[in-house]
Design a protein around this nucleic acid. Structure first.
Lengths: 226, 226
DNA sequence: CCAAAAGTGTTATGACTACACCCATGA
DNA sequence: TCATGGGTGTAGTCATAACACTTTTGG
């Protein structure tokens, strides 16, 4: 294929924002840092950073996850590309937003003594947030709730084996509503996404619970029932 | 809010691609141009262009629609942001893709004598296409089919007033399947998206059809039934 | 033995599917 | 009068929603 002399000229300033969700203490939480530079210095914000010229947006999102929160190997999905031209006082900025689902176990290392002070916040009780980041979080939450209904991505928030009650709790926390135990089990088991192991979770002063595992720990899309 | 000296440096080459869908002659079609420059010179491609530094991606998408196809005031939605780093021989390119729904009436002016030779192609019989544009079209089609089910966006493909048969045909063409007339009417009318006018479409040698109009010609999202 | 969570089945309701005939018009 | 597309209702099936008691363990 013949190469033509057209030079590729950079024509935009791209940032990558990564909304990190986790379920912890019975709450859906998101990780926010404290901005160390203007604009919005000292205000909470989604983790993000500028795209490096030699990396792809996906690579940048994973780099940011690792650098800012020490997180690797998690569910990551592109959310939307937002234009910040009128919201960022620095000028014309385009933000490619992602969202990540992180099991609580991968957030243990978050010491909070990092320079940007990452902390988890209940998505229903967010502090003041820089830019229009609160709208982005709402948008991500909507996408997450929808995807719960027609994919298996909840696997990315649970340990390798889990009980049906843990699974149901995760759904209830994210959807923000109680579900009927029998109906939930019947329906979820009919989807053939999980398999019962021969192990049980003991320890409580009650009947032990069967442990299950996901058949696939890569994203699977179900047929929609429309 | 204090401005800090951080300079905004452009760090990426952004292109905007706009997949244009229309229904015509009982087929779902998309507009493709013929590339006049390498790479893929002379090959069919989605309409697109580089982002201008002073415009937002949405503005760029509308500018491209107008410049390349003479189309204004249509349904336009951001689809996904694709990374072309390994697909475009010119180097690191990021494409923000949109899709537009255009009623046939707005495509009359397409003379085909423009320098890029825009033509409509049946989405099921596409010619050879530049880059990975065929995958992008498939992705757009999937999004379009999904959105038909839970939004009113079909309004953007129909004239101001229309018959229920026209409406059903549009659904059938896009979804690629026949629908039951009685069931379709019962369900669609129950959504309260359209209202019967007191006009009828006469002209065929058969009973005249009632004309309907959409209650809202801005996008409306229905509650999903999940 | 008792407190606590695990586990299980049936009925009622509402949504979707399948299906066939009469109606109004123009030629 | 007849060919053509417009217009309508019902019964069967399937998925979802509502609902309460027994089981197993640890303390």
């Amino acid at each position: 294929m013949s190469q033509e002399p057209t030079k590729l000229r950079f024509n935009a300033a791209i940032t990558i924002d990564v909304i990190i969700f986790t379920v912890s203490d019975g709450r859906l939480k998101t990780l926010l840092i404290k901005r160390k530079n203007p604009p919005y210095q000292g205000v909470r914000a989604i983790t993000g950073g500028f795209l490096s010229p030699e990396e792809t947006p996906d690579q940048a999102a994973r780099r940011i996850l690792k650098q800012k929160a020490g997180i690797t190997d998690v569910y990551l999905e592109q959310l939307y590309t937002f234009d910040r031209s009128d919201r960022d006082p620095r000028g014309h900025v385009i933000s490619i937003a992602y969202f990540a689902l992180v099991p609580e176990s991968k957030l243990q290392g978050l010491t909070g003594d990092s320079i940007e002070n990452p902390e988890l916040f209940d998505v229903h009780y967010l502090p003041d947030i820089a830019f229009d980041h609160d709208e982005i979080i709402k948008y991500a939450l909507k996408r997450l709730r929808n995807k719960l209904e027609y994919t298996n991505i909840v696997y990315s928030l649970l340990p390798h084996t889990f009980t049906l009650t843990q699974l149901q709790n995760t759904y209830e926390i994210i959807l923000g509503q109680q579900l009927d135990k029998r109906n939930f089990r019947k329906k979820f088991l009919s989807l053939d996404l999980i398999t019962e192991t021969d192990e049980k979770l003991t320890g409580g002063r009650h009947r032990p619970a069967s442990l299950y595992r996901f058949n696939s720990t890569t994203p699977v899309e179900l047929e929609r029932s429309f």
